[in-house]
Design a protein around this nucleic acid. Structure first.
Lengths: 213, 213
DNA sequence: GTCTATAGAGGGATAGAC
DNA sequence: GTCTATCCCTCTATAGAC
């Protein structure tokens, strides 16, 4: 893969981070990459396609970096702690912010939507794998399945990331709260069969899944 | 308040919804509002300030519309059900999407950051009031306080809203999952003193609040 | 592959007539 | 308060020299 192509991808990531989706243009990316503006079109045909590639490749690399840590997780609390570490560490490098910006742009742009869907799927798959492992045999699985739980966690972290851009204190306490609540899962495991029975009784009374209103 | 001013606010909201923060300009807003482009600057001085006003006023009106329903909530599950209703209803009118767009733009723009902070505070205050009411006396308050819980809920819903723009199915099951998990709070209330004792024992073992790693 | 130069569209903002 | 006309900027994208 050519050196210039790499520079442009990195330039796009940096520009999305520092100037947002509204400030991301062929000119601003090229300036950040230290290359000529016309090369954006030579290598990627359009700005959209460069942003698309940057989002996909940037996320793929980041997820790969964290894979070992995901594999080491053995509880919901550890998973959320990893999420918080990731959120703090990536506030510096800004890779999570990039996904948030692309996701915002994706609401009206089909090409960016594809990139955002791809990036979200990478994170969600990783989280889902962890959940599948740590929820096995836990009473928590009476309530939620990993396939629905994983996007909920991914979405929450992205929302908190955006929140952090305008109110860091509130975002920090939101992160703390999520982690504190994960103690509920451990409590359920502590209580074991007692909890499971109580849970089943309550679910019978309210009706599972469909109608919660 | 002048008729044109109102049209411009509505036009800005509609433009943010249908074209996103990247497609929102004085020209596009004026077209949506059916007024002359120069009037944006006569009434609001700049596009930024119009978007700022649209975000603040639009959110204030929406929160006011839902206030009665917030007041009627008596459990965490009902609160999340209201959130889901709101999320579904506003996907049509698009008012939540507007906040998401402004929030994305706010990451790099101090003026928009003020508007986003204001809008988020409106929602969070409402949610916090409900939590303060329904968490009173519940064992859940051993784990989380309303001031940290409220932004976590607000952020999660915004994240899910954005997720829904690229993957509606995943977003729907994320909403379902959050609601299913709220049954844990009810279980805790069912178990009463037993749960509270078990919770305290576990918190003593792990250490409260600070270090969850 | 990389550069300069530029066409052509759209954007923010203002001046000045009405 | 509202309109037209316009300035000047930035943007995407391409043509063509090197």
């Amino acid at each position: 893969m050519s050196d210039t192509r790499r520079k442009l991808i990195d330039g796009a990531i940096q520009t999305l981070r520092t100037r947002g989706i509204t400030g991301t243009s062929a000119r601003s990316i090229a300036a950040a990459a230290g290359v000529n503006q016309a090369l954006v079109f030579y290598h990627f045909d359009s700005v959209d396609q460069l942003v698309d590639a940057a989002c996909r490749e940037g996320t793929a690399e980041l997820v790969a970096e964290y894979r070992a840590r995901f594999l080491a997780v053995t509880s919901l609390r550890e998973l959320l702690a990893l999420g918080r570490d990731l959120s703090v560490a990536e506030r510096q490098s800004g890779n999570v912010a990039v996904l948030a910006q692309v996701l915002a742009g994706a609401q009206q742009d089909p090409r960016l939507a594809g990139a955002a869907r791809f990036a979200l799927a990478l994170w969600t798959t990783e989280v889902e794998g962890v959940l599948r492992r740590i929820m096995a045999g836990s009473p928590v699985s009476e309530l939620a399945d990993p396939a629905g739980f994983a996007p909920a966690i991914a979405a929450s972290f992205i929302g908190i990331e955006l929140y952090g851009g305008v109110d860091p204190d509130a975002a920090a306490s939101a992160l703390d709260t999520l982690q504190a609540l994960s103690v509920l899962a451990e409590l359920l495991d502590d209580l074991g069969p007692v909890a499971r029975r109580a849970l089943r009784a309550r679910l019978r009374r309210t009706g599972r899944g469909a109608d919660f209103s």
